[in-house]
């Protein structure tokens, strides 16, 4: 009997795990953005002394994980599972960062939805009493993503207004079976939704239907209403996705205009930093959650947050073959109180 399931896609955790520490590391551009005061480490150079962008990204993720663990006054030996993923082919970033850490490792691929995918699985593992302490982490790097998915850095091309800017950064969260919150209370796992968008320069438009599907299902399953949340925040839908979310959810009877935001919009100043539709990448939701949201929750400025990281699950090969972009969105409720 699956006693913890409520509704079609949601679980209610009966022993909600507590977030006992987080860490966020960002690149120089993110460190100039509106959220700069919330990040633990801001790099001066996005190579971070490494020979390649890929190695730099692996170091960012590894250091974020180590920092989160030490912020909790623990050592890697105390961690029972590591859940991590990233954007690069065969998730090499996560494998190379896990290689240094000696923690039992589950590698995940959820593209930019990896932050909530890892939090979902980590929280369920703890709630199911399979572990007491787990780490959930993800990262992305502008330059390693750009060369894999788009054009070389020095290639003189123009970006469209719907294009987004991959965040250079990594975030890690330590979940524990004991602690004083904030807690992960509900998990709504998304389904793939693909409404046929093929334009890789319009990720917001491609992923928005998945986010809408997950958010409205979350309200149906839990009985929560939008007003029950202090903040409802998607991962990286950007400005185009935000318009779609507000518009289409209103048509379904959910008014999010008061408390909705998007990590990709929050992390950059779109006009000053010329990021067009906003930030994107696994690191986007990761650093905004582990930096901004967690710290605001600790200060009690936010008490209940719905985080919906969104992923575009295409590859550079599927794009060349003209396939549309499968979208996914996983929602996690983070609450300062447990009833």
């Amino acid at each position: 009997m699956a006693l913890k399931r409520i509704g079609a896609q949601t679980v209610k955790l009966s022993n909600p795990p507590s977030i006992i520490s987080t860490a966020s590391i960002v690149g120089p551009k993110e460190g100039e953005g509106p959220l700069k005061d919330y990040f633990d480490i801001i790099l001066e150079d996005d190579m971070w002394g490494q020979e390649s962008f890929e190695k730099s990204e692996a170091k960012i993720q590894e250091e974020a994980i180590k920092l989160a663990i030490s912020n909790a006054n623990l050592s890697p030996n105390d961690i029972e599972y590591l859940f991590a993923g990233d954007l690069l082919n065969q998730i090499i970033t996560s494998s190379y960062s896990a290689r240094q850490l000696n923690i039992p490792f589950f590698g995940l691929y959820g593209a930019c939805s990896t932050m909530t995918e890892s939090l979902s699985l980590g929280a369920m593992i703890i709630d199911g009493q399979f572990a007491d302490k787990v780490v959930c982490a993800t990262s992305s790097h502008f330059s390693s993503a750009e060369r894999q998915f788009r054009f070389p850095l020095e290639y003189g091309s123009q970006r469209t207004f719907s294009a987004q800017w991959t965040v250079t950064g990594g975030g890690a969260t330590v979940l524990s079976s004991t602690g004083n919150g904030p807690y992960i209370t509900y998990i709504t796992t998304g389904k793939i939704v693909d409404l046929g968008i093929v334009d890789v320069n319009n990720m917001g438009g491609a992923m928005a239907p998945a986010a809408i599907d997950t958010i409205s299902q979350h309200f149906k399953d839990t009985g929560y209403n939008p007003v029950d949340y202090d903040l409802i925040i998607t991962g990286d839908l950007g400005l185009v996705g935000k318009k779609i979310i507000l518009d289409l959810l209103r048509k379904e009877g959910y008014d999010l205009s008061e408390n909705y935001s998007d990590c990709g919009i929050k992390i950059f100043d779109g006009v000053e930093q010329d990021t067009h539709a906003g930030g994107s990448g696994c690191g986007c939701a990761a650093v905004v959650f582990n930096g901004y949201i967690y710290k605001e929750m600790m200060k009690r400025n936010l008490n209940r947050v719905l985080l919906i990281a969104t992923g575009a699950l295409h590859s550079s090969i599927s794009t060349l073959q003209g396939e549309s972009i499968p979208g996914i969105a996983h929602a996690v409720t983070i609450d300062n109180m447990i009833s």
Partner: peptide
């Protein structure tokens, strides 16, 4: 949906 998104994208 594709037509709808087309309208939401800044020109």
């Amino acid at each position: 949906y594709q037509k709808y998104v087309e309208r939401k994208v800044p020109k």
